[in-house]
Simulated assay, not measured.
Amino acid sequence: MSVKIGNIDLGPFPILLAPMEDVSDPPFRYVCKQQGVDLMYTEFISSEGLIRHAAKSKQKLDIFTYERPIGIQIFGSDIAHMREATEIAAAASPDLIDINYGCPVKNVACRGAGASLLQDIDKMVKMTEAVVKATNLPVTVKTRLGWDDNSRNVYEVAERLQDVGIRALTIHGRTRSQMYKGQADWTLIREVKRNPRIQIPIFGNGDVDSVEKAAAWRMEYEVDGIMIGRAAIGNPWIFREIKHYFNTGERMQGPSLEERMDACRTHLLKSVEWKGQRTGVLEMRRHYANYFKGLPGSKDLRMKLVTLENTDDILATLESVKNRWSEELA
């Protein structure tokens, strides 16, 4: 049976790409889409930035036809501003709007946005209702288990947000106080899914970094789909590998050297095309280590690539290293 968010059909068990600040931009989303991801989101966008027409916030609204279905994720602390930001985001024609109630970082949570709303569920509900009423698009939410171990309130959050009209909920299996440390705990996610009142899709997020874990947790925690974040950085093939395993029960061979190089080149060229030469090259630097992880001399390659400022020089370096590696690995 297909999982649906409103009229968006995501297939029987969708694999989603998490919205990640400074990572899930259009160039990164492009390489993930090539590997079969079912639903993607923009980086999270500040409602304040949108209503003030900040250039960086407006640029994050860029979405492309090949990315569909795609959601725009927004965050904020002011209900009226979130309503206005929803209208601006909806005008960019995404397939859905997602609200971030999960970001744990200080400059978001300490300003009353992101995971901070887990401390004030009444306000979270009012904000969500305002967003739902501001658009005809499906509205979804991404959140955490709670603020800390003493307030794991996502069971209540799920019920109350469903009541005001959200169409799907993604739960990261950590509290805000855990940040990204320790192990994600999906047991409460399973409890939410088992709640007979819950009729919307429930997606699990946190620590899924292998085919085996995705398959095991799919069964153990009974979620409708899985959202992957950090494990996809420099490894967009994780989406096709998980799907292949689900479809065949067999583990797919990892990406070839040629595939790694192609993905890295494509990512770089898309980055430069979207952001311009200087910024595109600079922001690509955080991805090199992951693309070539485990290959001989990958650290030296990364050290060289992060010093280069010209696209042609980077492409030439990649080509020469590819030729050398091809000989060594033959």
Rank of each mutant, 00 (worst) to 15 (best):
residue 269 L to T: 13
residue 130 A to L: 11
residue 87 E to D: 04
residue 227 M to T: 01
residue 308 L to R: 07
residue 223 V to T: 11
residue 208 V to G: 05
residue 287 H to K: 04
residue 5 I to K: 03
residue 197 R to K: 15
residue 322 K to E: 15
residue 76 G to L: 11
residue 318 L to K: 11
residue 86 T to P: 05
residue 130 A to P: 03
residue 104 P to D: 12
residue 131 V to S: 02
residue 322 K to V: 02
residue 284 M to G: 08
residue 72 I to R: 00
residue 144 R to I: 10
residue 182 G to I: 05
residue 202 I to W: 08
residue 204 G to A: 13
residue 62 D to P: 00
residue 274 W to T: 10
residue 14 P to V: 10
residue 71 G to D: 01
residue 325 W to P: 04
residue 45 I to V: 12
residue 25 D to I: 03
residue 142 K to A: 08
residue 159 E to A: 13
residue 141 V to A: 02
residue 266 T to C: 13
residue 162 Q to K: 11
residue 97 I to A: 05
residue 259 E to R: 11
residue 263 A to D: 15
residue 15 I to K: 00
residue 30 Y to E: 09
residue 226 I to D: 07
residue 296 P to K: 10
residue 150 N to P: 01
residue 117 L to F: 09
residue 166 I to N: 07
residue 195 N to D: 15
residue 279 T to E: 15
residue 88 I to P: 08
residue 6 G to C: 10
residue 70 I to V: 08
residue 288 Y to I: 05
residue 147 W to D: 04
residue 52 R to I: 04
residue 180 Y to S: 10
residue 93 S to M: 12
residue 207 D to V: 08
residue 200 I to W: 01
residue 259 E to C: 00
residue 93 S to Y: 15
residue 47 S to I: 05
residue 48 E to F: 13
residue 307 T to Y: 01
residue 124 M to Q: 12
residue 51 I to T: 14
residue 44 F to G: 03
residue 214 A to L: 07
residue 236 P to A: 05
residue 274 W to C: 08
residue 21 E to C: 14
residue 50 L to C: 07
residue 8 I to F: 09
